[in-house]
């Protein structure tokens, strides 16, 4: 675990510093009127005149205190900016995950049990489409239909302008209304992937000997499927839950940019454009830690669910 944490910080740091030139060079390019002297001063402020490994150790020392430095753009602490943005991203993705699992498990089970049926074929087509369609395109389509054409759903931000004056219930409803489109876009892609995975997993389990045993002892078909087969087929899904953290974070860049949502993804995107390196490095570290955390939770859940691991021989 510790080597991975260290590795994450090294890569996050190296990505930014391996390129020739100093980060401030690029920053200065954006404002060509900054003279040489001011540039030197900038380098000093950010410690960029020191050898690279010293810079790394200084950075990591501060990082241990959760201090990611200050943004080049508005000079606010990076940590503050991130902790403002992260909850929004987490809210959207948790909502999407809940929807994805709520629907994809029954869909996957049903298409596996009735393999080759009309239902199975229809969902398969849907799955392939959902898999192949770029999320930003689906976002654009939904936006232009529900937002522009019908005008029934907001297409940007997470709250209305006069949000502050709303009652609590009104506030919640307002946020929900704003989240319908972005959450739908994430769900469409995820639904396709997870229901397909569930189907495969279920198909693999259905042909196992112990399912035949369950039938041979005269259990009703429902018990055979939902107790014996599903109990085993859900195990790999737990792992998938952990593994989907990084792709959800990746996806948030696109979703949040399209729908102008002030989340982590959009922060990352803005920082890339403004070359706000402290924010970029922090974004990398925080997102990688989140992934690691997700995997850890999934491992623990898996070990709890699978007696072969819980009671290793």
């Amino acid at each position: 675990m510790i080597p991975i944490l260290i590795g994450i910080t090294i890569i996050s740091f190296a990505v930014i510093h391996l390129a020739p030139g100093k980060p401030t060079d690029l920053m200065v390019q954006l404002k060509p009127n900054v003279d040489l002297e001011a540039r030197e001063k900038l380098n000093q402020i950010y410690g960029l005149d020191k050898p690279i490994y010293v810079q790394y150790f200084n950075w990591i020392k501060k990082l241990a205190r959760l201090d990611f430095g200050r943004s080049f753009i508005d000079n606010r602490p990076v940590m503050e900016k991130i902790s403002e943005r992260l909850p929004v991203t987490i809210l959207i993705n948790v909502l999407a995950m809940a929807i994805i699992f709520l629907f994809s498990i029954p869909i996957g089970v049903k298409s596996a049990v009735r393999r080759g049926s009309v239902f199975d074929k229809t969902t398969t087509i849907f799955v392939f489409m959902g898999f192949a369609a770029p999320s930003f395109w689906i976002g654009l389509l939904l936006m232009s239909f529900f937002g522009v054409r019908l005008g029934i759903l907001p297409v940007s931000g997470i709250a209305s302008l006069d949000f502050e004056n709303f009652t609590l219930i009104h506030k919640v409803l307002d946020v929900m209304r704003h989240l319908v489109l972005p959450v739908s876009v994430i769900s469409i892609g995820g639904l396709a992937g997870i229901s397909r995975y569930m189907r495969q997993s279920m198909l693999g389990v259905i042909s196992q000997d112990y399912v035949r045993t369950a039938r041979a002892k005269g259990l009703p078909e429902k018990t055979v499927i939902y107790k014996h087969a599903l109990g085993n087929a859900l195990l790999p899904i737990i792992t998938i839950l952990g593994l989907s953290v990084p792709s959800l974070i990746s996806g948030s860049v696109i979703i949040e940019t399209i729908f102008s949502i002030p989340g982590m993804g959009r922060l990352m995107f803005e920082s890339v454009f403004t070359r706000d390196y402290n924010v970029i490095m922090a974004g990398l570290v925080v997102s990688a830690f989140l992934t690691l955390f997700g995997n850890l939770i999934a491992d623990i859940a898996y070990a709890y669910a699978d007696p072969r691991i819980r009671y290793g021989k």
Partner: peptide, 9 residues
Amino acid sequence: STSLNPVLK
């Protein structure tokens, strides 16, 4: 080894 359900006692 495969005829018994691995997740049930």
